[in-house]
Design a protein around this nucleic acid. Sequence first.
RNA 1: GCCGAUGUAGCUCAGUGGUAGAGCAACGCUUUCGUAAAGCGUAGGUCGUCGGUUCAAAUCCGACCAUCGGCUCCA
Length: 654
Amino acid sequence: MPRITLPDGKVLEFQGPVTGAQVAESIGPGLRKRAIGVKLDGDEIRDLGRTIERDCAIKIITAKDDDPDALYLLRHSAAHVLAEAICALHPGTKLAYGPPVDDGFFYDIKTPAPLSEADFPAIEAKMQEIIAQDRPFVRCELSKEDGLARTEGDKYKRDNAERAIARGSETISFYSTGTPGQAWEDLCAGPHVPSTGWLKASKVMSVAGAYWHGDQNSDQLTRVYGTCFADEKGLKQHLHRIEEAKRRNHRKIGKEMNLFHLEEDNPGQVFWHPAGWSIYVTLMDYMRQKQREHGYVEVHTPSVMARSLFEKSGHWDNYRQNMFATESEKRDYAIKPMNCPGHILVFKQGLKSYRDLPMRIAEFGSCCRNEAAGALHGVMRVRGFVQDDAHIFCSDSQVESEVVDFCKMLIAVYADFGFSKDNVLVKLATRPEQRIGDDASWDRAEKALGDAVLKAGMKYVVSPGEGAFYGPKLEFTLFDAIGRGWQCGTIQLDPNLPSKNRLDATYVSEDGSKKNCLMLHRVILGSLERFLGILIEHFEGKFPLWLAPEQVRILPISDAQIEAARALKAKLVAHGVRVTVDEKADMLGAKVREARLARVNYFAVLGQKEVEAGTVSWQNQQAEKLGTPTQDEFVAAVLSEIAEKRLPKGFAAS
RNA sequence: GCCGAUGUAGCUCAGUGGUAGAGCAACGCUUUCGUAAAGCGUAGGUCGUCGGUUCAAAUCCGACCAUCGGCUCCA
């Protein structure tokens, strides 16, 4: 006799076992009609038709796009319909695994012939047919033995069933879309929506390769991505977001704004053009200033270093496949993939005392990593990049305060780009299975990092087992203007590299004895290439004035104002403003259009009237008229906006 | 590295076996103009690379390279 607690606290009592549908019905027939599943005790989602045998809290799930549980049910079910459609169209297809994911679902399959986008219309048509038939999802639960027997000969499904049993499952369930035994069925734990008719707004999105169990040496499968929403509106909005991401694509905007290019003959390395390099340098200058304020010293270490050095650091053994190596006069060298070994060598010059700690060594370190060809992606994922890298050499007792200070610096930096503290996710990656060091020091290190985050006024979530083999780390993910997450900052505690059997970085402690220091690897922006790519997409190329490559464009109406325009330009240049004059023989309308398309922040029109009055006609990128201030007022306004690092409308960090 | 798709002028794209095209940008001339495109003209491409089929290849076939969407990787 289950007692069922509703979200409003009301308790329903039933005489015997009851299904989710019956619970919904007892609340109201309208709810029963809209219900697609139930959630028990806040964690277990179930089919509407399954029996509830225990006392529990219940939530009736209805098909709504703002309910993740509803989307989970819809997408999981849509994955089945997709699979059924493909099996119908491509006999011999083997199914592996089809879960819901962010933004949709996928199904990993093995088809007799390759699948491509050209197959989508047929698949979607077949799906629509199944959906239109509004066939029920029927659950069939078998014993372990019968379940295993049913998957006999199906390599992937058999494996799934075995794994379910290994996880402690007492039964094996199948779902059919229609009458069991007649309709198409799939091994599946569920849950699903009551019938295929609920999957009104579904779409096949893309096809990609995937490995079975994510193992490169295992079978190559085809992964078909799709998505499903409760109604057309949700699907439309989703497609719109994808369009928006395309519109902001940094490769497209980079081309339009002439920021950089990539050479086909030199994949994975960026050629920065004047406009792009201007932003890049501004970023570096900005970080340099922040680092100074936080007590860092800046160094510069060699790009190419001897193999022997990387052998000592361990990189040669553990990171070799990602390093560009070379040889000269019978000695092996490699281009550095990281800056840490160089910084330790700088630290080790001269005897260090406990008074020298913490020592914060920063470098805009140029690194090369031989990323797999298929991993390259615009400026986001490259083989040559520069990090705002630094290593903090400190003692055990200094770790926490160093991490606190780092977190505060990071929040302040992100805020300057419009990523507010609430838009930064902090993960604490804890000890992995393969690790060095004793549990007591891991306990200490993980606690120090976690406490530091809290002291800096942030929260964190734990990523169990995701730490480096030598120590735990914090990872900082920021969310851009269209809600996409980018992991940028990180700080990692490393007792290994400065230890005696590695590069042996020591200091003389208070009691006169020599001790090995600890090391914190840390970046805030990460790869400047990638961070700049993120900024391009975040701002859609419409940078805040302080970062913009062309801050002001002066538009003389006719040749008669060119001299005055050049004089105004000189005035702005003297204050460090990035400014150009459009001296072309175009009409004003054309100059304005070009300035706007070029995403210039401000343009100042100079006609006969303005020259005579000593003013400019001032307008911004959004075509808002900003009046006709005197030239001096205009210059002052521009300078103060730069100095304040003011953000465009809608980007203000809280 | 793996799966799928794509590669034609600086950019966006058309061209399915028979002499490589358009718009924009560039350049020249004319126009000197008031807030999103003045007019006319000129120039620009071994069709990603290499090989094959064919009287003839941007087009068909093969290999390779790069890019895109994923996977994998990121001690």
